[in-house]
């Protein structure tokens, strides 16, 4: 599986034309990947050396669980970003699918209620996709409208948080398989299957190609509209699943949850080198982006940094990471 889905291979030349040392393994330039791994190792090492809490099983489990929401949303977002679009509605979908699931638990078997929750995400994604693909509306505008509409619907469904009493409701979000949370395994499975989808299936290749040049793809006999709609549907499904898992983990579904989650998802893609113009991005690097974001959050929490300062620091770190990447990309 090639990691780089598309786009010029990274070269190691800074903006001023100076050469950086390269890491070439088996003819492939792995400098950027190596820098990424180094960053993550550094974050982990700093955390482990400076905090006695970081390496405790409780914190690590917590970390793995926190990763799930951002991870699922980031993968869905990546698929949409690859087509050259954006999905701002995912945070609201998280709230809606969570609260609907929690509400339905009273009357339906839990797996069915959860399936309905995920299905609402698929439905919203499909509507976004059809509006973008069939009617040619701007993705930013469509999903911005969806963001506020779906948030409103979540409050219409229930103004107050819903906390199901059946303990089975908590299983999906809190069960462990050995040391690892089940929800984390689900997220990893989505990334793995998603990576294969994007690199090795005709539909996945079509989605990547559409972001590169939709007209070329259309003339190659590929149904562009259907694939764009599919991308938003995938994002909606991921958001629906994330909402259900989040409600189950917290044990309570709130209509106000998930505000600005879309921003973390976009940030993870961008840190992973995805181009917001479409056509370039990778699942592995996006996963790396998720790790970076979640580690930073966890670390700042452990240090007891005030949450507003956390936001400031996160913003600065995102800029720094992207600057490093930019200097490592070939200029065309």
């Amino acid at each position: 599986m090639t990691d780089q889905l598309a786009g010029p291979a990274p070269a190691t030349t800074t903006a001023r034309g100076r050469r950086l040392p390269r890491l070439v393994v088996g003819g492939r330039d792995l400098t950027v990947q190596a820098a990424f791994v180094t960053l993550i190792v550094l974050l982990v090492a700093t955390a482990a050396l400076t905090s006695d809490v970081f390496l405790t099983p409780a914190n690590l489990t917590n970390l793995l669980k926190q990763m799930v929401t951002t991870g699922l949303l980031a993968f869905g977002m990546l698929v949409v970003i690859l087509t050259g679009g954006i999905d701002l509605s995912v945070g609201s979908v998280v709230a809606f699918s969570g609260i609907v699931t929690a509400g339905l638990v009273a009357g339906l078997p839990i797996p069915l209620a959860m399936a309905v929750g995920v299905a609402t995400g698929i439905g919203f994604g499909l509507v976004n996709g059809v509006l973008v693909a069939r009617f040619g509306l701007a993705p930013f505008v469509v999903t911005l409208a969806a963001l506020t509409t779906i948030r409103g619907l979540a409050f219409v469904y229930s103004e107050v948080p819903i906390a199901p009493e059946d303990p089975a409701f908590f299983t999906l979000g809190s069960a462990l398989a050995g040391p690892i949370p089940v929800s984390t395994l689900i997220m990893l499975a989505v990334f793995l299957a998603g990576g294969i989808f994007l690199t090795r299936t005709p539909a996945g290749r079509s989605i990547v190609a559409i972001g590169g040049n939709a007209e070329t793809v259309r003339l190659a006999g590929i149904n562009v509209r259907r694939h764009v709609a599919l991308a938003y549907t995938i994002s909606g499904a991921c958001a629906g699943l994330a909402g259900v898992i989040l409600a189950s983990r917290v044990g309570i579904a709130q209509p106000s949850v998930g505000v600005a989650f879309e921003l973390d998802a976009i940030a993870a893609c961008v840190i992973g080198g995805a181009s917001l113009a479409g056509g370039r991005g990778s699942t592995r690097a996006t996963f790396g982006g998720v790790l970076v974001l979640v580690l930073i959050n966890n670390l700042l929490n452990l240090y007891g940094v005030q949450s507003f300062w956390q936001q400031v620091l996160k913003g600065l770190i995102i800029i720094a990471v992207i600057l490093v990447q930019r200097t490592n990309r070939v200029r065309t």
Partner: peptide, 27 residues
């Protein structure tokens, strides 16, 4: 409208026949 410039030569050459090299669902 002829090429997806950011993609590889292989990706471009196979673009109109994506399904010609699939085995099951995978390329």
């Amino acid at each position: 409208s002829g090429l997806v410039l950011g993609m590889t030569v292989a990706d471009n050459i196979m673009l109109a026949t994506l399904r010609a090299t699939t085995r099951g669902p995978l390329i």
